[in-house]
Nucleic acid binder design. Structure first.
Length: 586
DNA sequence: GCCGTTTTCGGCCCGACTGTTTTCAGTCG
């Protein structure tokens, strides 16, 4: 866990504990907001212990929170957190995760029934003592029972690569309802976050069409439970692989499409900022549109003909324009921080013209060289690099120097078998634990492209990891640093090197840092991309193709790059064939 | 606890839904 993640977690826990103790909700929200801001902050805040000024300028982090973060950096703990933890049973965090249970109810359970965890909660259901709580009836208890099962099933955040196909299937299902004009997914999935807490689907439908859409949504194959089904919103729990994910449907009139899309895309912080901007300009923004401010307390959408008084709202662009804001891509709406700056022109999926990290049957891929090249060509790419594993990755069929030399010849001859795409001979060479590369320089010099990646010793300490990756990044024959940290989202933390140093060295040596587009990796992560770009580094987005379906992961890599603010100019995969070739020969 | 182009004090987004009520509290996003 990085320091930022730890600090974010501690602040979030403080927020939850204050909430359970019945503290002021604004204080609670302030901690939760600071936790999100820290989690999304690009630069490592570990240095805050010596120099708290690194915390200045982070929105939502004031003097008191800054002091807590500095304390954590200095001592490894936050006294306030420890004091709270001594008062609030840790098991209540699990109880809070039960859908439908919030701080008020959990607090009542804890203080009047002695509930300190999920087992206690189950006991109060079994012996009916739960019914003694205010506003607690049979239906609520049934929902809590189902909610406990949801929590115990391990439902949590779902990887973008799992959630996206589900979201697309839901969009297709809603779009297929006769009369539905359009549908799309919104939420953190549209912002391209590496994991999502739920799936938000938006559709345009009114009257009987809306009822048909609701019915289609709630009866989607894989739906385990309908959580809510109202006029304009529905919520269900869906199977997602071995886990469960919540999906929400919102139905709006066509003239509210843009306002609703913006609203449900978020983030929360972004919405607040846009709304404040609107109010200053004498208009008010909600999910139905942008309306002139007046003294009538009835919301515009509830007034007869009210929607027609909207200044904007049918498209997101109309709202940005009306507020005189540049159109901000969903991936950049994570926080309010970038709001006042003109957004960079971000790289797009269509800009990507080269895959520079791919495996064949020579190591652990399933495609031949020609099959791989054919796939890349079908994507409209001008270049594909064959980068099979090096000898230390024995389990992945890493190539001995002799086999690599033969493989290079095979790659060169494959180039004669297929037109319209350049096939590069390369290697994904292991960066050994001490920073040496897995092949001698004279062999590496025979290759067109060298991707250097860490595969083993992924728990070494940050200082060693930094030295190890610096050795690779500054090596004159290395073009790309592959999946720099080796993390697997939700499974393995990976290396925690000093990314400032890595990025600065990469910039100096014109070595590209890879965003590995595999949705289990997304490594570099979004905050690292932002940091790398601030240091002037180049970025590569690669699918690390082993199987034809891996090419579909490109969009997740692109989304991650966009969240970091990557432009076409700084993305080597988006360069022309000629420019890419010159860079590789440097 | 945070924040300020009307404020350094007094605000802090707001609408939908459910289940419990008898007019609404709690939760969610």
């Amino acid at each position: 866990m990085t320091f930022n993640e730890l600090a974010s977690q501690r602040l979030e826990e403080i927020a939850r504990m204050l909430d359970l103790l019945g503290e002021d909700t604004f204080k609670v929200n302030a901690h939760a907001r600071a936790a999100r801001a820290i989690a999304d902050h690009a630069a490592d805040l570990k240095g805050a212990g010596d120099d708290p000024s690194v915390l200045e300028g982070i929105e939502g982090v004031g003097a008191k929170t800054a002091a807590k973060i500095a304390e954590l950096a200095r001592t490894g703990t936050i006294k306030e957190h420890a004091d709270l933890a001594a008062r609030v049973p840790a098991g209540l965090f699990d109880v809070l995760r039960v859908p439908g249970l919030g701080p008020k109810t959990v607090r009542a359970m804890w203080q009047t029934l002695g509930v300190t965890g999920l087992d206690d909660l189950q006991r109060t259901i079994d012996d009916d003592s739960i019914l003694s709580l205010p506003r607690m009836g049979a239906k609520t208890v049934e929902n809590i029972k189902a909610g406990i099962a949801t929590v115990r099933s391990g439902a949590g955040r779902v990887n973008i690569g799992v959630a996206t196909p589900i979201a697309e299937a839901l969009v297709a299902r809603i779009s297929g309802v006769p009369g539905v004009e359009r549908a799309a997914f919104a939420g953190s999935l549209r912002r391209g976050r590496e994991t999502v807490g739920d799936i938000d689907i938006l559709g345009v439908a009114e009257g009987p069409t809306a009822e048909a859409a609701r019915e289609a949504f709630c009866t989607t194959p894989g739906v385990k439970r309908v959580l809510a089904r109202g006029e304009s919103r529905c919520s269900v729990e869906l199977e997602a692989g071995s886990s469960i994910v919540q999906a929400d449907l919102k139905l709006v009139p066509a003239r509210s499409w843009g306002a609703a899309l913006m609203y449900f895309t978020g983030s929360k912080e972004f919405n607040v900022r846009v709304r404040e901007r609107a109010l200053k300009r004498g208009v008010t923004l909600n999910e139905y549109g942008l309306f002139p401010l007046d003294n009538d307390p009835t919301p515009h959408h509830q007034r007869p003909g009210g929607l027609e008084t909207a200044v904007a709202g049918d498209t997101e662009a109309s709202i940005f324009k009306a507020l005189e804001l540049p159109e901000l891509a969903p991936e950049l709406r994570e926080s309010a921080a970038d709001f006042d700056h003109a957004p960079p022109e971000l790289v797009t999926l269509q800009d990507i013209r080269a895959e520079l990290h791919a495996h064949t049957t020579a190591s652990d891929g399933v495609m031949s060289i020609v099959q791989l090249a054919t796939l890349a060509k079908s994507k409209g790419f001008h270049t594909v690099a064959v980068t099979d594993h090096s000898k230390s990755s024995a389990l992945a069929g890493g190539l001995s120097p002799e086999r690599l030399r033969e493989h290079i010849r095979n790659v060169r001859s494959a180039g004669n078998e297929i037109d319209g795409i350049r096939i590069l001979a390369g290697s994904e060479v292991d960066i050994l634990a001490d920073g040496r590369l897995d092949y001698d320089d004279d062999l590496l010099a025979e290759l067109d492209v060298v991707v250097a990646s860490p595969h083993a010793a992924l728990t070494q300490d940050p200082a060693k990891a930094t030295a190890r990756l610096l050795a690779a990044v500054t090596h004159p024959l290395v073009h790309i640093l592959g999946h720099p940290t080796g993390r697997l989202i939700g499974h393995r933390a990976g290396l925690e090197p000093n990314m400032d140093e890595i990025a600065a060295a990469a910039a100096e040596h014109q070595t590209a840092l890879e965003i590995n587009a595999n949705w289990l990796r997304l490594d570099l992560r979004d905050t690292h991309v932002r940091l790398a770009l601030s240091k002037g580094a180049l970025i590569a987005i690669n699918c690390d193709t082993h199987h034809p379906k891996d090419a579909e992961n490109l969009r997740y890599g692109v989304a991650t790059s966009r969240r970091g603010g990557l432009s076409k100019e700084r993305c080597v995969n988006a360069w022309t064939r000629e420019r890419l070739g010159e860079w590789l020969k440097r």
